[in-house]
Write a protein that binds this DNA or RNA. Sequence first.
DNA 1: CGTTATGCTTGAGCTACTCAAGGAGGATGT
DNA 2: ACATCCTCCTTGAGTAGCTCAAGCATAACG
Lengths: 129, 129
Amino acid sequence: MVLAMAIVQEIKRAVRELGFSESVAHLLWELDPAAEPVPLRQLAERLHCDPSNVTLLSDQLERRGLAERKPHPADGRVRTLVLTREGVAVRRALLERVQERSPLAALDDAQQSEMRKLLAVAMAGHRRG
Amino acid sequence: MVLAMAIVQEIKRAVRELGFSESVAHLLWELDPAAEPVPLRQLAERLHCDPSNVTLLSDQLERRGLAERKPHPADGRVRTLVLTREGVAVRRALLERVQERSPLAALDDAQQSEMRKLLAVAMAGHRRG
DNA sequence: CGTTATGCTTGAGCTACTCAAGGAGGATGT
DNA sequence: ACATCCTCCTTGAGTAGCTCAAGCATAACG
């Protein structure tokens, strides 16, 4: 539990060093380039925050040229946020950085796989609860 | 890593439900009643924030009757923050709540001890890094 | 075609935070 | 003993991130 906080602390640090606010990074994290474009409203739900907040965060990403608002093809009200080529690169860099900084990187392969098994069990129990 | 974020998310929720701001709870967490009283400056370092911020958070705890500022016996400049009887109770309730809500509570005893071993390794590696 | 509902944006306001300045207590040098 | 500097806490000003309420555009339904 303490380690969970340590991990998150480390993530925050890495994020700041790359010049991102914590919440902008969180949004970036959710924008999987491989997945379908997601309406802003759904992003708000995933981030557990207000839609208006997503608007502001999206503005920041757009201003940096990392993402673009695209209208939904079928529904004119809906906006989706899509990463630009640069956005995809930055996102990947961020993920790598976080991963190598993670305290879990100190474990060897066998330990990591063992850990993954335990975490899977925990996740399963958590979702049910 | 995802689970680390889930754990922290869960902690935040539990904290909110008990009517605490995230940062006040963090301060409460640091105030171990069994340990020696800690100067506010050191608390600021532990929380990775400005001393003035600790002042404000301490105010909140005092206003709720959960803690009291006590002058340091040897150094008149220094203030320490000490939990009241009620503060100790609330802190314990908070810890219990967080622990039972933790996804890791889904693991059985053997799995938990295995997990603890791995986490210890990770922590060790982390502190060195 | 008018009414209602939905999705995003804007504006007002709040909270948490940082930075710079101030006051009180201690340490040091003469 | 006194002047100076240093440390710790507090205060005030300013900023960032967030929520809530209102507004506007588009869609769905009678």
